[in-house]
């Protein structure tokens, strides 16, 4: 398993370098090395790499890792292989707050809109969790999914109503709908990156408990897991990881859904290997998607969320057809 994680890490490193090289103007690997370690203040390539490319590369890396990890946790929490962080209403909540802010305030500072998106994600997830809980200790997976679907529909309805009233707002929220890792300078996204990084590391010591929870709540209680507390912590981590992702890069589809499956194929169901693999695969996937997004239709760019959906949706359909035991 260590070997496989090593391979995945190497793959990520390659994708990282490739992401710094690729674009309308390609830069060689040696030049990339120089730009990173001994940049010249006047060289255009160095400047290009150190500003826009490094930023979007880091954003793609963190967002991808966060979505992969959050998706894995979500699938364990709901015991549903087709669950994704979006089911907690995270994307819908973030989008609603963004639309609300843009409609009310017009040209607001980007950090405020990002903070709003994160807040909306957290609010939606908290509401879904509260509805699904019902009585203490009763947050069954099915209730969670149903509550998430209901709240997602509600938030989307609000968002659409606001956009119909204020059509100018549509342009400013397009970025959130389609997803992008290139719209932000590093100076504005670093707090969210840091938050994600902390959450990613915080997942490590919980792996053993998730392994037990995956066998069912009764089994987990029997084996001495504090199930209610673990579920609460899991939801909080999903909110931070997926909420920060949507606040940094907008709505990026399918990564949180597909990546955990791919990772699980590679490592098996042990969370101590599976979740790190999901983070690595997620980061690599989003880097590759971003490279494709900015090189496919030069000089234009495909929104990265569209890229991930183009690749992710067919994979997902294949997955549904192959899953024989979904009726269990």
């Amino acid at each position: 398993m260590r070997v496989r994680l090593g391979w995945l890490a190497s793959g990520l490193a390659v994708a990282f370098v490739l992401s710094l090289m690729a674009g309308a103007h390609w830069v060689g690997p040696v030049k990339v090395w120089h730009a990173l370690w001994s940049p010249s203040a006047t060289d255009v390539d160095d400047l290009l790499i150190r500003t826009t490319r490094l930023t979007r590369t880091l954003v793609a890396l963190i967002v991808g890792a966060g979505l992969g990890m959050a998706g894995g946790i979500m699938q364990t929490l709901t015991r549903n292989p087709l669950a994704s962080p979006g089911l907690l209403g995270i994307n819908a909540g973030a989008l609603f707050v963004v639309v609300l802010l843009v409609t009310l305030g017009g040209a607001l500072p980007v950090w405020l809109v990002s903070a709003g998106a994160f807040g909306g994600a957290a609010l939606a997830a908290a509401a879904v969790w509260w509805i699904a809980m019902g009585r203490p200790g009763q947050a069954g997976p099915l209730r969670l999914i149903l509550a998430g679907a209901a709240l997602t529909a509600l938030f989307h309805a609000f968002s659409q109503a606001l956009l119909v009233v204020d059509q100018q707002g549509l342009d400013s929220v397009l970025f959130w709908l389609a997803g992008s890792v290139s719209a932000r300078p590093l100076s504005e996204v670093w707090p969210l990156m840091l938050l994600s990084l902390v959450a990613l590391l915080a997942c490590w010591p919980l792996s053993g408990q998730w392994n037990v929870l995956a066998a069912g709540e009764s089994i987990a209680v029997g084996a001495g897991v504090r199930v209610g507390r673990l579920q609460g912590v899991s939801v909080a981590l999903i909110v931070v990881l997926a909420g920060a992702a949507v606040a940094m890069a907008g709505n990026i589809a399918f990564v949180g859904l597909i990546v955990p499956h791919v990772a699980r194929r590679l490592t098996g169901p042990d969370h101590r290997h599976w979740l790190p693999a999901a983070a690595l695969v997620g980061a690599t996937t989003l880097l590759l998607a971003d490279i494709a997004a900015r090189t496919l239709i030069l000089p234009g760019e495909v929104p990265i969320g569209v890229m991930t959906a183009l690749v992710g949706a067919p994979l997902f359909m294949g997955l549904i057809r192959r899953q024989g035991h979904l009726n269990d």
């Binding site: 015991r79 292989p81 053993g208 408990q209 392994n211 037990v212 995956a214 066998a215 069912g216 009764s218 089994i219 084996a223 001495g224 897991v225 699980r264 098996g268 169901p269 042990d270 035991h325 269990d328």
Partner: peptide, 19 residues
Amino acid sequence: PMAPEGITVRQLVTLGRHP
């Protein structure tokens, strides 16, 4: 009880050591 998908017998038995 329902075992997680793909888990081996040894991995399942190992869960018993959690406490």
